[in-house]
């Protein structure tokens, strides 16, 4: 292990990590929005939209992100829809994540509906009150563990961005290995930087889970 080499590579990896994080968090935010939207559409069985959301969810849950990105990045320009690489990365992540989040949140909604709705209605709440005060808070609380798992999954999936020539951690590592053959140093840095991104998310996720579990059972 050559520490000088590691020192000189650090800025490159740092830059790459910032790119991963930037695209990652944009993608994840939109994934959550899209997922919640699709889940609501599916849950209330809004005609047409519900079927469309269903097809979207199945298609994106059953194909790998790498193939989705290839399609978005290389195939769409051929039919006249050119797309920038970083935008494509965020879009791919949002579409993939949206499909996963939708399923998660819908099962959360389904698990609180039923008796809870009936009780709230019989207490004299109107429909929108039931949704905002009863169903949604509990559904969110129940979905948190899977949301966290999905976010970790999505952050890990960002490692395929190098395929559409975004200069992320994977790309940097591969590039440097190809240039200087410092394989051990490059791979060590790669592991360290991914750990830097993902361990805090994993720890924070555990904390959040414990807090909302508290919220779910009251007290």
């Amino acid at each position: 292990m050559n520490w000088e080499v590691i020192g000189s590579y650090l800025p490159l990896y740092w830059k790459a990590m910032l790119l991963t994080l930037r695209i990652g968090w944009i993608g994840i935010v939109f994934a959550i929005l899209l997922g919640v939207l699709c889940a609501i559409v599916r849950f209330y069985k809004i005609p047409v939209l519900s079927q469309l959301a269903g097809v979207y969810i199945e298609v994106f849950r059953n194909t790998p992100l790498l193939v989705q990105l290839f399609f978005l990045y290389f195939a769409l320009p051929k039919i006249g829809i050119p797309i920038r690489a970083d935008f494509c990365g965020a879009l791919g992540l949002a579409l993939l994540g949206g499909a996963y989040m939708a399923e998660t949140f819908r099962s959360g909604l389904e698990s609180v509906a039923g008796i809870q709705t009936e009780s709230a209605l019989s207490l004299g709440m109107n429909k929108s009150q039931v949704v905002t005060h009863i169903i949604f808070p509990q559904a969110f609380a129940r979905s948190v563990p899977s949301f966290v798992a999905n976010i970790i999954f999505l952050l890990k999936e960002t490692s395929v961005f190098s395929a559409i020539s975004l200069m992320d951690l994977m790309f940097t590592a591969k590039d440097l290995i190809g240039l200087y053959y410092k394989t051990t140093e490059c791979l060590t840095l790669l592991v360290v930087f991914y750990a830097l991104i993902l361990i805090p998310v994993s720890v924070l996720g555990d904390r959040l889970e414990r807090r909302v579990r508290h919220a779910e059972f009251g007290d």
Binding site: I152, K156, V160, M170, L187, Y194, S202
Partner: peptide, 23 residues
């Protein structure tokens, strides 16, 4: 489990394919 949970599969692929062969 934590290692597998946190590391992207692509990183593991690189470690095994480029790293272990080198070491």
């Amino acid at each position: 489990l934590e290692v597998v949970r946190v590391m992207p599969q692509m990183v593991l692929l690189f470690i095994v394919f480029f790293g272990t062969t080198r070491i």
